[in-house]
Design a binder for these strands. Structure first.
Length: 450
DNA sequence: TCTGGGGTCCTAGGACCC
DNA sequence: TCTGGGGTCCTAGGACCC
């Protein structure tokens, strides 16, 4: 008979350590207010590309009952009457402020894992008291240097740190910082009982429906569910969630998150401002998307082995929904914009209905490998961009701006100020774009002293 | 008229091998 | 007549996240 197995060592996180999750409050809306302080107290919503759906809103906008994902055109009139300010999403500004915010936070705590544009995990080896002091300094530094308010949750696991972070946002008395151990000490199981199961990290709409059917409606119910039953009926991922709610760390740091660069696939897709028809226009869009994707590929020193392209008609249109996709296997892995854009723009030739009304198209780069470690037999090397075209394009883009030069259809240049404004009439609408005050000399904020 | 974009991980099932 | 079992790899699809 074997000795009883010791408890599995917790991956990723020391058992005595604390997971710290810092997450910006209404990040996109907060960014909009940084250079326009008059927005701070007004309801603000930020719209998806093409000014389609609401993707972010600040507290006053939430109080008006506006939810994420709502198509803007369905609420525009009412919202404007209510004094709502709408903005097109300005990712260039958000990404710039995000980088500053992350860099500042990294000074305060170790092992930063940038999880998304507005949040990061960190570790604290300090006791509760010292951890709170550090988090307080961190919040103040980010606010002072970027104008972005952040909330902080501290717990033994990532899933509980998420819960604690929500708690901090929902309870002003916490002043933006919540230690889960304190909440538990004060409220016991009532704390998790007050969290609906669909708010738990890792539980989406589908799972919520199935869990409800089993009588699991709160985070507390989920925590107390049988882990092996959950694994059997759902998946190993939800089982991990159960264990994490019990305070046992099971979610490893994302392998490459710390380096923040390498991904397994690169996707560039867009909706058009209006439906387009015909292969030529489609090929033009695909060529441009492929070049954007290729720039990202080169930035992460990657090569791609396959190029997938797809396009689809509107699921809301009265006509039959139609989606077409094709994956092209490259002869050799490549980072050459001529090869990749060429493959993308030719992929659908002869395969699309010339009368279909396409509203979206995209390019995915797959089978990514690391260019720095790509070796093969003599004479069978990757189709590297040996003529240096990619570097020239990158350099020209840096110096003269996007879409001044490109391959194939990629060089067309339009009239507007958006990156996305290729000049093609199908390029997306961004009617309410704020200035990119941190990345464009000609859009810097102007301050007047009186 | 007008409904986003970019990722990750897991699983089931088929092909293939010995 | 009797027709196995276990492994790997790949892919498509489904779920999730922000």
């Amino acid at each position: 008979m074997s000795a009883p197995k010791p408890a599995d060592p917790a991956p990723g996180t020391a058992l005595t350590g604390r997971v710290v999750l810092a997450d910006a409050n209404s990040f996109f809306a907060s960014c909009e207010a940084v250079f326009n302080p008059s927005l701070a107290d007004r309801p603000v919503v930020v719209l998806s590309n093409n000014d389609g759906c609401v993707v972010a809103r600040n507290r006053p906008a939430k109080a008006l009952g506006i939810t994420n994902g709502t198509p803007w055109f369905t609420i525009r009139e009412r919202a404007l009457q209510d004094g709502v300010v709408a903005r097109s999403s300005n990712y260039e500004l958000y990404a710039s402020l995000s980088r500053r915010m992350m860099a500042i936070m990294a000074h305060f705590l170790p092992n930063q894992e940038v999880y998304s544009i507005d949040e990061c995990f960190m570790d604290s080896i300090w006791n509760d008291k010292r951890t709170v002091e550090i988090c307080r300094e961190l919040r103040a530094a980010v606010l002072r240097s970027t104008g972005i308010p952040v909330s902080v949750g501290v717990a033994p696991t990532k899933t509980l740190a998420k819960v604690a972070n929500h708690w901090a946002k929902d309870h002003p008395s916490t002043e933006g910082i919540t230690l889960w151990s304190q909440v538990e000490a004060q409220y016991g199981d009532q704390a998790l009982a007050s969290v609906p199961v669909d708010q738990v990290w890792g539980v989406g709409r589908r799972l919520t429906g199935r869990l409800m059917g089993m009588g699991i409606t709160t985070a507390l119910n989920l925590r107390d569910a049988d882990p092996s039953l959950i694994r059997h009926r759902f998946s190993v991922m939800l089982q991990r969630t159960v264990l994490e709610l019990r305070g046992r760390p099971c979610i490893e740091p994302e392998a490459d998150a710390a380096r923040g660069v390498r991904t397994d696939q690169i996707l560039c897709s867009r909706m058009f401002s209006h439906p387009i028809e015909g292969y030529t226009t489609l090929a033009q869009a695909l060529s441009i998307y492929a070049q954007k994707a290729c720039r990202r590929l080169r930035r992460q020193h990657g090569l791609c082995g396959k190029v997938r392209v797809f396009c689809s008609t509107s699921p809301y249109a009265p006509q039959q929904f139609c989606a077409v996709g094709r994956t092209v296997v490259l002869e050799d892995p490549s980072d050459d914009p001529l090869v990749i854009a060429g493959a993308a723009s030719r992929a659908l030739k002869g395969r699309v209905d010339p009368h279909a009304r396409w509203i979206r198209a995209g390019v995915v780069l797959l089978d990514l490998t690391d260019a720095d470690h790509f070796h093969t037999l003599e004479g069978l090397d990757a189709a590297r961009d040996t003529h240096g075209l990619g570097d020239v394009l990158e350099d020209a883009t840096r110096r003269f701006g996007p879409f001044r030069v490109g391959v194939g259809y990629g060089g067309i240049r339009g009239k507007g100020r958006g990156d996305e404004d290729t000049g093609a009439d199908w390029a997306m609408n961004r009617c309410m774009l704020s200035p990119r005050s941190t990345t464009r000399w000609d859009e810097m904020a102007v301050v007047q002293a009186r």
